[in-house]
């Protein structure tokens, strides 16, 4: 049976997407606080933050910032809609990375020291995670013989059974995207304040926050695609949600037990672990297929 999400489901999912990202962030702050023996803010804290920011007046340096912020949200929104409607995974990936380009340009557009360093670090991060992300998407395409998301639902076994290692590599991407230790390099709060976001305020800062919600939804969404159980919609939803939660819990633990690393280390880690794991996994798949084909 080929599970096709209905159009209504897709629409609902794309509307719910930012709120899912928001809840993930809210739980994140709560769980982190509990791990540190604190009470922590309410679950809806990210929501309050954004509503408050929309209620504030803006102080911007120039209009270009607004354009880049809007383009950032716009591309991620487009990408989310494509993901929810089972579009082309490569296009989804490229739209995310385009969004990040706009985000970086928004940082660069103001001649400000912290913003500039934030932009630079954003680029280092892109250098670190884009190859991993791209190779993961590519290995999914290699296994499904197609880059369409809906084709993943037509596989015989879940992707994670064939290519589990890219998922491990994707943790690096996820940590970077969540702005979490050890890779919270660009927004390094205590070091360069908020990096790329520093020159934004009020509603436009809220836009960046919302874009961040989308981002989290997208990365978790793509990672949980590995857990699609073909032919069983109920189990698929359960396993995808469980996988998303598990990934996310692991990321919180990593966040709490590590300190921020230098971008040098990040690049080396991503090349040494991220890319290698994917390559090893794809090689294994090929060798197994070769042996099976030869036998």
């Amino acid at each position: 049976m080929n599970f096709q999400p209905s159009i209504l489901f897709s629409i609902l999912l794309s509307i719910a997407a930012p709120f899912i990202g928001m809840l993930i962030l809210g739980f994140d702050r709560k769980i982190t606080a509990r791990m540190q023996n604190r009470v922590g803010p309410p679950i809806l804290q990210p929501f309050y933050d954004v509503v408050k920011l929309f209620g504030k007046s803006e102080l911007m340096v120039k209009k270009a910032q607004i354009l880049f912020a809007l383009m950032f949200v716009g591309t991620l929104l487009l990408s989310t809609v494509l993901l929810c409607f089972g579009g082309d995974l490569l296009v989804i990936f490229f739209l995310i990375s385009t969004g990040m380009i706009f985000y970086t340009l928004g940082a660069y557009s103001v001649k400000s020291g912290f913003s500039f360093i934030g932009g630079n670090r954003e680029l280092y991060q892109m250098l670190a995670y884009e190859p991993i992300f791209m190779l993961t998407v590519f290995s999914v395409g290699l296994i499904t013989k197609s880059f369409r998301v809906d084709q993943i639902f037509g596989l015989e076994v879940p992707l994670v059974a064939i290519i589990p290692l890219p998922l491990v590599s994707m943790m690096i991407v996820f940590l970077i995207k969540m702005q979490k230790s050890p890779f919270d390099i660009s927004t390094a709060h205590t070091e360069i304040i908020s990096g790329p976001m520093i020159e934004y305020s009020g509603g436009y800062l809220a836009l960046l926050k919302i874009a961040h919600w989308y981002e989290i939804f997208l990365v978790i969404g793509i990672m949980s695609l590995f857990f699609v159980v073909p032919g069983n919609p109920v189990l698929t939803v359960v396993s995808m949600a469980a996988a998303g939660l598990a990934i996310y819990f692991v990321s919180i633990i990593i966040d709490n037990v590590t300190a921020r690393v230098h971008w040098n280390t990040m690049l080396r880690l991503s090349a040494a672990i991220g890319i290698t794991l994917i390559v090893v996994n794809v090689a294994i798949v090929y060798i197994v297929a070769y042996i099976a084909g030869g036998a």
Binding site: V61, T104, L105, N120
Partner: peptide
């Protein structure tokens, strides 16, 4: 992107 950033970097 780095190049693009240099070109648009102004403080007003």
């Amino acid at each position: 992107v780095k190049w693009f950033g240099r070109l648009i970097s102004t403080d007003r």
